[in-house]
Simulated scan of single mutants.
Amino acid sequence: MTSVIKVPPLVTVFGGSGFLGRHVVRALAKRGYRVRVAVRNPNLAGHLQPLGNVGQIQAVQANLRVRWSVDRAVQGADHVVNLVGILFESGRQSFDAVQDFGARAVAEAARAEGATLTHVSAIGSGKESPADYARTKARGEQAVLETMPDAVIFRPSIMFGPEDGFFNRFAAMARLSPALPLIGGGHTKFQPVYVADVAEAIARSVEGKVEGGRIYELGGPETMTFKQCMEKMLEVIERKRMLVSVPWGMARLQGSLLGLLPNPLLTRDQVEMLRTDNVVSQAAEQEGRTFEALGIKPQAMDAILPSYLWQYRPAGQFTQPNAA
């Protein structure tokens, strides 16, 4: 009697080598999926291989600006996950090309292949936003739902975790600088969310456990101002630093100048984003489009931040608890 070997479903993950991507790949690999990671440079995705079994994770070249590479990356996939987004423009990597045109390209390729789709956007997306980032994110969402009405869209708040670009960046600044800037006084509200919780939501979507055709907003259990986030970070790394308010006008000027650098610390567009709170909307809570509807209890910052920010303490891992 001939036995039939059942091949696990294939999931193509665009942007799978990034901060969120590596957690999504890990969550999918643990569930037994075959994972095809579509990235611009597969040679820089070797760190993903240990997350799964031999041959389970494969990196392929794809660029959202090149449609045929998107189609090739999706070929044979049962589900497609699009995580690609940029915080600042660089050369041909513009907001329009990546977050609008790119989102539509992935959706059209998934539809042609008969695959289901999960798309990751961001809280704050809006067609009327003064920030190019937010407007193109909103147009990307619209393109996805126009192309695949049953797609699942997630909008996370600012994400934290071992490789994040938020707490790590400011903690690194605190090691060298006697003061940290508070853009606009630091009053902007965030709902920081643990990156692994967002990855779990995406994995459940791939499993078909999330209702499609809806936009879910994912925020952590705590709502904090930018200033409170800095105070929390300084408490964890056990350093005392001045928090200096930077008026909006000066911040825009700084963003315009710093935005000219290859990897800017701040851009004018990011300053515009900071003028709007980055928290889960009341509509999402009332309509059941949050973590609660997905059966996920998001983890608090106190449980996660010390696990990776210890490296910024005066004596690193050897710092005594509650040391001055």
Rank of each mutant, 00 (worst) to 15 (best):
A174D: 02
E141D: 15
V195K: 13
R135V: 04
V106P: 01
V152A: 11
R135A: 00
A172E: 11
R139C: 04
P130C: 02
I153R: 01
D164N: 11
L117F: 12
S121D: 04
P178K: 06
D197M: 05
A172K: 14
P192I: 09
F166I: 08
M148G: 10
F160I: 10
E108D: 09
S125K: 00
Y133D: 02
P178V: 08
T116Q: 15
S177M: 14
G124H: 00
P192M: 06
A112G: 13
S177Y: 08
A172S: 15
H119R: 03
A196S: 14
S177F: 14
L145R: 13
P156E: 06
K189C: 07
T147Q: 08
A131V: 00
I123T: 01
P192L: 11
G184S: 10
R169D: 06
R175W: 06
A151P: 12
E108C: 07
A196N: 07
F160C: 14
G124M: 02
A151K: 04
F154C: 13
K137T: 03
P149C: 05
V120C: 11
A112F: 02
R135I: 02
A172G: 14
A110W: 03
A112P: 02
T136H: 13
Y194L: 08
T116D: 07
G185W: 00
A151D: 10
V120S: 05
S129R: 00
Q142D: 15
E163I: 09
R135W: 01
K189T: 07
T116N: 10
A134P: 02
A174P: 04
E108F: 06
P149D: 08
F160G: 13
A109T: 10
G165E: 07
S129Y: 01
V106M: 03
F167K: 06
G161N: 10
A112M: 07
V195T: 08
A171L: 03
G124L: 01
G124Q: 00
A179H: 09
H187N: 11
P162K: 06
M173D: 11
F170L: 14
F154M: 11
V106W: 04
S177R: 10
T188Q: 15
S125D: 03
Q191V: 11
G185F: 01
E128V: 10
A138H: 02
A122R: 00
K127M: 13
P178I: 13
K137S: 05
P130Q: 01
R169H: 11
H187R: 15
A131P: 00
R155Y: 06
F166S: 15
M159P: 12
G126H: 00
L145D: 09
R139K: 14
S125I: 00
I183Y: 03
A131W: 00
L182I: 13
L182S: 09
I123Q: 00
T136K: 07
M148V: 15
N168G: 07
E141N: 11
G126A: 01
V120Y: 12
F190K: 02
V195F: 12
T118R: 07
D150C: 05
G186Y: 02
P181F: 03
A138P: 01
